[in-house]
Design a protein around this nucleic acid. Structure first.
Lengths: 188, 188
DNA sequence: GTCTATAATTCGATAGAC
DNA sequence: GTCTATCGAATTATAGAC
C-alpha cells in the first residue's frame, strides 16, 4: 500500500542517500567525493547508491539544484534592497549549509556541469529579479557585479574560511556589503 | 660546463614541465589534472614528470605560488586606492592567465592545500598592504571585504565565465568595483 | 636522460546469491 | 531489497633496460 503519507523503506533509503550525498559533495566537491564515501555516510552498501540513482553523475545532478527564493525587491523599501539581498543570501546559506548552493559552489571551479548550473541560477533567478528594479538599463552588468560580490563573500566565508571574514558578525557584513549591493543595483 | 647563462637540457625539460603544469592545473584544477595530461602537454614521457619533481603533489606545490606584487598604496592618490587595486589585480591576472593565481583559484574550493595557500596570500600580502592605509582599525575586516570582492570578481570573470562579467569592458569594471574597494579600504 | 613495462591503488559500476 | 564479490578502467609511482 503506497500513498503520499506512508514512507516506504525505499523512500527512506533514497532520502538517506540524498542527504549523505549533499553533505559529502558540499564538503569535498564532486571529484573527491566517492560513491563509497556517500554510502558510508548513509550507512548502506555502495552498490545501493548506484542501484537507486544509476550513476555518480546522476546523483550529483539530483543534488546540485538550488532555488535562491528571492523575495520581491519591488515590494520593500527601495533604499534597502542591498541590505535585504545580503541578509537573504546569508540566511539561505546558513539555514541549509549543505544544500544545493554549497554543493555547487564547492564544485563549480573544477567541474563544468556545476559551473553551468551556477550560471543558470544567475540567468534564471538573479538577473530577472534585479531587472525589475533599478531599471532595465545594463541590468545584466548590474546583476553580474552583484553576483561577483555575493559569490566572493560566500567563497571567503564558507569555503575558503578566510579568518576575518568568518569572524565578522552577520550584521556587520549586512551593513558593509549591503551598501555595495545597493550601489550596484540602483547605480547610486 | 654549467653556469647561470647556459641552460642545460635538464633545465629546459624542467621548465617545460613547469609551464605545462601551470596550464593544466589552471585549466582543470588539482584533482582532474593528471600527470599524463601534463606530460602530454610538455611532449615528454609521464615518468619524466615524476623523475623531475618526485610526485604530483610536489609539482603542484612548485606551481601553486603567487606574488601579488602590490604597489605601495601610500605613495599614490589616496582617493584612487580602490581604482589602483582593481586595475592592478586585473593586470596581474591578464598578463599571467595561467600563473599561480589561476592555479590556486581553480583548486582552492576542493583542495585544502590550495585553500591554505590562498589564505597565506591574504595574510602575507593583502592584509599588510591594506593595514598601511586607512588606519589600522579593523584592518583585517577591511582586507577581508576587499578580498571577497576581488576573489568574487576573478571567480565570475575568469573561472565561472559569467557572460555579463566576461563581457564588461575592463574600464567599466575598474570604475564600478574600484568604488567598492575604495569604500572598504577607507571606510568612505 | 629517456622511455617501456608494470606494480599498487582506487575508483565507478555490474553480476548474482540470498 | 540488500549485500558479497569482483570487473575493468584509470590513476600515481617505481624498476630497470637502453
Amino acid at each position: 500500500m503506497k500513498n503520499a503519507e506512508h514512507q516506504t523503506k525505499s523512500d527512506r533509503t533514497r532520502a538517506a542517500i540524498v542527504a549523505a550525498a549533499q553533505e559529502v559533495f558540499a564538503a569535498k566537491g564532486y571529484e573527491q567525493a566517492t560513491v563509497r564515501d556517500i554510502a558510508a555516510r548513509a550507512a548502506i552498501d555502495p552498490a545501493m547508491v548506484i542501484r537507486y540513482f544509476g550513476s555518480k553523475d546522476a546523483l550529483f545532478a539530483r543534488v546540485a539544484v538550488f532555488d535562491l527564493k528571492l523575495p520581491d525587491l519591488k515590494a520593500g523599501d527601495g533604499n534597502r534592497i542591498g541590505e535585504t539581498l545580503v541578509r537573504h543570501f546569508l540566511s539561505v546559506w546558513e539555514t541549509d549549509a549543505n544544500g544545493g548552493f554549497a554543493v555547487l559552489l564547492r564544485s563549480a571551479a573544477s567541474n563544468e556541469f556545476a559551473a553551468k548550473k551556477l550560471r543558470d541560477v544567475f540567468a534564471g533567478q538573479v538577473l530577472p529579479a534585479l531587472a525589475r528594479v533599478g531599471g532595465t538599463a545594463r541590468a545584466a552588468e548590474r546583476a553580474g557585479l552583484v553576483s561577483s560580490q555575493l559569490l566572493g563573500l560566500a567563497l571567503c566565508r564558507y569555503v575558503l574560511k578566510l579568518p576575518p571574514v568568518v569572524a565578522m558578525p552577520r550584521e556587520s557584513i549586512i551593513g558593509a556589503v549591503g551598501k555595495t549591493i545597493q550601489r550596484y543595483v540602483t547605480g547610486r
